[in-house]
Every structure is written in C-alpha cells, then in structure tokens.
Amino acid sequence: MLYTPLSITDIFPSSEQEFQKRQCVSYNGRQLYVEEMEDGQFQVLQLLSTDPQDFMNADFMPGTILR
C-alpha cells in the first residue's frame, strides 16, 4: 500500500513518454507540477505550496492552461 497525496497516474504513468511531459516549474513565484500539451502550452496538475491563500488563486487551479 502507498499512502501518498499523489494520484495513481503520477506514481505509475501509463507510458514513459507521458511521464517525460510532466515537470515542476516556477510560475509567478509558486511551484507548480505541470504537463506539457501537444501545442507547447502547459496544463497545471498540482500546486506545491504551504500557503493556504495560494489555493484560493484561480491562476493555480488544476486544469488551468499556462500561456
């Protein structure tokens, strides 16, 4: 058993190619776990922060596209 906040696809990606599309980036001073899309943009998967106010910011919501 794994006790983790990560989803099963983060731990066991379906393919190595999909895993390589994911990375941790700094955006507006916050650390984000993102996935590169086919058009070169990035989609937010997870916000990595200890500040509760960061989670109220719509710019960091999972699914948001970074341009």
Rank of each mutant, 00 (worst) to 15 (best):
Q43M: 15
V25W: 00
D51S: 02
E18M: 06
Q53Y: 12
E36R: 03
F12K: 01
I11N: 03
A58V: 15
Q20T: 12
A58H: 00
F55R: 12
D10V: 02
L66Y: 04
S26R: 13
T64H: 10
F19D: 15
I11R: 01
Q46Y: 02
S7N: 13
L48K: 05
F55W: 12
N28V: 10
T9V: 13
C24E: 14
M37R: 14
M56L: 08
E16T: 11
E36M: 10
R67N: 14
Y3K: 07
L48E: 11
G29W: 03
C24I: 15
Q23A: 13
Q46C: 05
A58F: 03
G29E: 07
L45D: 03
D59E: 11
A58G: 00
D54R: 00
T50F: 04
L66E: 06
S14Q: 11
M56D: 09
V25Y: 00
R22V: 04
Y27P: 14
T9L: 09
F55L: 10
Q20Y: 01
G29M: 01
I11W: 04
T50Q: 09
L66V: 14
S15R: 01
M61N: 12
S26L: 15
D10P: 09
E38V: 13
T9F: 08
Q41E: 15
D39R: 03
P52T: 01
Y3V: 11
D10L: 05
E18Y: 02
F19M: 13
E18H: 07
P62N: 03
S26T: 15
E35G: 07
R67G: 13
C24D: 12
F55C: 08
G40P: 08
T4E: 01
L48Q: 10
Q20F: 07
G40E: 04
N57I: 11
D51W: 03
E35D: 11
N28L: 12
D39F: 03
M1F: 14
T64N: 14
R22E: 04
D54L: 06
F60S: 07
M1N: 13
V44W: 02
R22H: 05
I65Q: 06
L47Y: 03
D10G: 05
V44K: 05
R67H: 15
G63D: 06
M61A: 11
P52H: 06
F12S: 03
D54W: 02
Y27C: 12
E36V: 00
L6Q: 04
S49Q: 05
F42Y: 15
K21C: 12
L45C: 06
L48M: 10
V34G: 04
S15I: 03
P62V: 04
G40S: 08
Q46I: 01
V25A: 09
T64R: 15
F19Y: 10
L66N: 13
S7C: 07
S49I: 09
T64V: 15
F42W: 13
Q53I: 10
F19S: 15
M56K: 08
L45R: 08
Y3F: 06
L66W: 04
L45N: 10
Y27I: 14
F60I: 08
E16C: 07
Y27L: 11
E16F: 07
P52D: 00
G29I: 05
R22G: 02
F12L: 02
L2D: 09
G63C: 06
F60W: 04
V34K: 01
L32R: 01
S14T: 11
P5A: 00
M61W: 05
Q23I: 10
P5I: 01
N28Q: 12
E18S: 11
P13E: 02
Q20D: 11
F55H: 10
